[in-house]
Design a protein around this nucleic acid. Structure first.
Lengths: 191, 191, 191, 191
DNA sequence: CATGAATGAGTTTTCATTCAT
DNA sequence: TATGAATGAAAACTCATTCAT
């Protein structure tokens, strides 16, 4: 059979896995359910992934790579620092919002027994575009003097929290809300 | 009389469970391990908790109640809004830091199959002290005009994120860092 | 403590055991339930009986001995064979009826893993008074020529069956019914 | 296609269960033993039956339905009442004899915690062919005037009792014995 | 490759029995 | 003796993985 078909199936399995992790968490993740959700037989999943651990780890890599590339797209070196930061942050927010299944998976993965020392380091790469931009901001003295990790937390933390609130049902995120939020964050991190 | 069924043992089981969840996550939680960690026989756990689900749900309630009470202690109505907010926020931060096992458990619980509609609502109570103080701030016009949920995210989000960074090893949280962080947050939420 | 008290407790445990076996059968018989039903602590049962098997076997012996003696009481050698048989059979019926818990226990015991070769033989003793009377009947040529075991079945079988029907709710046993039933049975076994 | 989930396996499990219940009783029935006896892995049984309770209840229904159909086969309305009754009774006897495993199971089931109100009623259906024939007998005035339940007990009770005796080893049932027994029973129930 | 029934090791849960009080 | 909490071996049940079709 054609190669294309295989890739489609891998994607199918990834989507099924993420969806289930978002809905019921890692704890309840069963291989049989993944297969069913993907519209495949249990055994088929094992053709594409050696075992559960491999599936999860490969999915993790897949999401990480895809995410990093996507949300950091189109950042223009020519733009002012503020403008660049605004753009990157909003892209991150929107990306997180649209890809909540991926986000949920990443979050769960952190506290899972699947997280190895290796993937711990790789995780930081996800924030790489942010960290680089923050470096530029500090060089241009447009950013408050403080550890970059703290500044990153000030920017990223609220995003995660707001998405959680929306999932809870206690907050409705609109473009306006996103814009205002950035302005507030900017107040705290600008120099 | 026979050995007395004691609350101390319940506490023991709770601690063992939280410790294990923090270390290896929800996924790997085994009743036999809980018992061993608590220094008890497997069967003993079942004297105090009907089954695994009950243990987890009761532990969740226990942590929630205990946490809410603790971090919100000693808030003085006489203090200025800024001072009160600073105090509550720092207490929340320190509490989260000191009770990372509890925090880890709560976080894991959110995405677990154990979360019911009922516990979803109860969860909001945890943030109640914060929400009340924010109301006061908005009445006194000391707080930016924005949905309280957003403001809460701006305050709480960075705390969660920083603690995660410290767990990762990419950040070392010191009292100074905490203080500076609050000042930055205050810049964004004050009016 | 006094000796009397002990015997009372043994009796208490026996009654509790029989009641539970009647209600839910052997399968569901738990030592903790026996104790609770008897109003005792679990451990107390083990003071009087070495283990579950011992309790069941001793109870079996207790019932067997008590029953045999009781239902066969007052049989008068001077009475005619028919009169004697009638009396013995009715006593057996009434005894079975009044002591349905005992009867249920005996019945269950037969099919249980507690039944040993030894108790298998002892079981026949229960029917001894009947078998003796049947011997007399055959000597007096008042009884049909057929294996005594078959005749016994013709007499005893309906009793068990009727009691089961009454337990089911599909039959109401009255003294009149008992009398008529004997007359019918007599028709079949007389010579 | 994968191995097909087959009804034959269900039959296999049923046979294994009945055999074990007959040999060692309900009490000692273990799922692992059922599987082993059926030549399957433990887990396989759970593919066909949700849990132990379900297995037992479905087996009960299976036996009941099968039994009713089988022993009542070939009854001819044209035959005289006596002939019909003789035939039905003998078929019942032989069936009970040949299917002692089934019979043992049914008997055990009655006093088990698995018996529900629903199955209690269904149980009566087993005797339905008998009850109908008895009705005919009473209409034709060939049967003694007495509650049908009593007459049923006079006919069925001895069968159960004799089989029990044979199992005990105290009676050897032969075709001659069966024939003579019916004649005696007929003496008591005819009008 | 695809399927999904079968497997059996691994977990959860029960319950006879012990033992500290 | 009496108590009933504690124990842990044994039974019920689950689910990742295999394999016959």
């Amino acid at each position: 059979m054609a190669r294309v078909k295989d890739d489609q199936k891998i994607e199918l399995i990834y989507q099924a896995t993420m969806g289930l992790v978002m809905k019921h968490g890692f704890t309840a993740l069963k291989m049989a359910d993944v297969a069913a959700e993907a519209g495949l037989a249990t055994g088929t999943v094992y053709i594409y992934f050696k075992d559960k651990e491999t599936l999860i780890n490969q999915l993790y890599n897949y999401i990480r790579e895809k995410s990093t590339g996507l949300y950091a797209e189109g950042i223009d070196e020519e733009d002012s620092f503020r403008k660049s930061l605004r753009r990157l942050w909003k892209q991150f927010f929107n990306f997180s919002l649209e890809h909540s299944a991926e986000a949920a998976f990443l979050e769960q993965y952190q506290r899972s027994p699947y997280l190895t020392g290796k993937s711990k380091k790789e995780n930081n790469l996800l924030m790489q575009p942010f960290l680089e931009l923050l470096s530029r901001g500090q060089q241009e003295k447009r950013l408050v003097k403080l550890e970059k990790e703290v500044i990153l937390s000030l920017m990223i933390g609220p995003v995660h929290e707001m998405i959680r609130s929306q999932t809870n049902g206690s907050l409705k995120i609109t473009p306006t809300v996103i814009d205002s939020t950035f302005e507030l964050i900017w107040e705290s991190v600008k120099r």
